[in-house]
Design a protein around this nucleic acid. Structure first.
Length: 450
RNA sequence: UCCUGAGUAGCUCAGCUGGUUAGAGCAUCUGACUGUUAAUCAGAGGGUCGGGGGUUCAAGUCCCUCCUCAGGAGCCA
């Protein structure tokens, strides 16, 4: 493509330049000297390539400069591209010219092992490591897949506000901030309520953005700031909702398999497990899941007076914890949707099942390989009186939900939606050890820097 | 918030029952080598043992306290 700005050749396209002399810009990932040879592993963001400087091929000055190179020094180098099976990646550059932009000194991250705390403190530099780069590239692919899927299926993007006047669900804790003379505003913990309003205007919509939860949780599945995509569809019932969730997840996985082979290889991900992710996924109701727990003697683990006790059989009505989720998922090689949860355990806006008022038309999708919940969704309550009563029952401020109740006053329709957590999806697909590795700059309870 | 564990060189760690001048590997610097790819070999520099207090002739080591970090639970995407 002709462009008005400088365009450089990229390492990922090297196979198009075999035999040509090209200039590459990048950073020194590693360097080894061997007498009259200097090997430079060059990184440019698109990939890595080994470059060889031979004393006999360059001037004294260039060779001395090659010997001075340190890890993460930024350089521009020129040389011919050659296939070579001695080089990692299969290509090599015979360097004829070398220019140093900036000589880096004492780069803290070495090719050896490092601890988690150290790497997190140096997240701004850790991102340059090959595995972190690969995860970020998969993340970009996951987000692209999500947008392509919705844009290609008649959805409109309708962004929800990040500053909100009050809780969407009332349950989770919110980050609070001052808002001029209007008192407090809160960082959004879900765009759903606004997506519901949007879908009554534009039909199928999705909202995509950061979400904030001030929960004091400290696990490898939680961030205080994470990205969520939330589709909302008028005239969809719970079954349509579940079908859409399956289609989306299948599309994301297939897109990553198609476009991120190299990245998944760097991450040593077993892609045969991802190849199996095809519809139909598994489905069971909450009640069926509880029956299964009974049959397999899986207890409810509860803390009473600081003592952990096992309760058998698992009592109907209790929410599943990590123990139950993992036990259920162990039998599956594909995601499983669990639907129709006890009403008490779930949010106020979820519609009761007309066939069993003790449960709501909600669903969670659990991913295999101990990846946990990646989707939570429901059919929404569309009856004005029922919703009004729920808001009162949950002790939520009625005046804050007046606009939301309006949606049930002016042409209410059955509608459904769900939220998919981007980082949890990336964690599952990449096999990353911790969710903090799936977002460029993670925000966690005890870390906000860098 | 609760439970568990850890803080010693730039990094990853060892350091016994309290006992001379606190160690190793990597990284850094100097030198050797035309195939390294976490190179190898030879040499050099590098320490407030997380902070504070206490016990003792003597504390990295024992006690108290505070701080920081990690893992797990609950909550959730």
């Amino acid at each position: 493509m002709e462009s008005r700005y400088k365009s450089y050749k990229n390492i990922e396209n090297l196979k198009d330049y075999i035999g040509e002399t090209i200039t590459l810009n990048g950073w020194v990932h590693n360097k080894t000297e061997k007498g009259k040879l200097v090997f430079i592993m060059l990184r440019d963001g698109s990939g890595f390539v080994q470059c060889v400087v031979f004393k006999g091929n360059v001037s004294e000055e260039i060779f001395e400069n090659a010997k001075r190179l340190t890890q993460e020094t930024s350089i521009s180098l020129t040389g011919s591209v050659r296939e070579d099976n001695r080089a990692p990646g299969g290509f090599e550059i015979d360097v004829t010219d070398l220019k140093i932009y900036h000589l880096a000194k004492d780069y803290p991250i070495t090719p050896k092992e490092h601890g988690d705390a150290f790497l997190l403190e140096n997240r701004h530099l850790w991102l340059r490591s090959s595995k972190q780069m690969a995860i970020m590239r998969v993340r970009a692919a996951v987000i692209k897949a999500i947008r392509d899927f919705f844009d290609g299926n008649g959805f409109k993007l309708m962004d929800s506000p990040i500053l909100t006047p009050s809780a969407c669900e009332g349950t989770s804790t919110l980050f609070e901030t001052k808002y001029f003379d209007l008192g407090s505003a809160y960082l959004s913990q879900s765009g759903q309520l606004y997506a519901e309003a949007s879908c009554m205007a534009l039909g199928k919509v999705y909202t995509f953005g950061p979400t904030f939860r001030a929960e004091r949780s400290k696990t490898r599945k939680h961030l205080t700031e994470f990205w969520m995509v939330e589709p909302e569809m008028p005239f969809f019932d719970l079954n349509d909702d579940m079908d859409l969730a399956e289609d989306l997840v299948e599309y994301i996985v297939r897109y990553c398999l198609k476009t991120c082979q190299k990245e998944l290889e760097v991450l040593e991900r077993d892609t045969t497990k991802l190849e199996k992710i095809k519809r139909p996924f598994y489905r069971m109701s909450y009640t069926e899941a509880v029956d299964w727990l009974h049959k397999n003697n899986i207890p409810l683990k509860k803390k009473i007076d600081g003592q952990e006790v096992d309760i058998l059989p698992f009592p109907w009505g209790e929410d599943f914890g990590a123990v139950q989720e993992e036990a259920i998922m162990e039998q599956f090689d594909k995601p499983c949707i669990i639907h129709r949860y006890p009403a008490e355990a779930k949010a106020f806006y979820m519609k009761r099942d007309p066939e069993n008022p003790k449960v709501v038309l909600a669903m969670d999708m659990l991913a295999p390989e101990k990846s946990g919940e990646i989707i939570g969704g429901s059919q929404r309550e569309d009856d004005y009186d029922a919703l009004y009563q729920r808001i009162v029952e949950h002790n939520l401020p009625l005046e804050a939900f007046q606009w939301y109740l309006d949606l049930r006053k002016y042409g209410s329709v059955p509608h459904s939606g769900f939220g998919l957590g981007v980082e949890r999806t990336v964690k599952w697909i990449t096999g990353a050890a911790h969710i903090r590795e799936t977002i460029p700059f993670p925000r966690m309870i005890y870390r906000i820097v860098p």
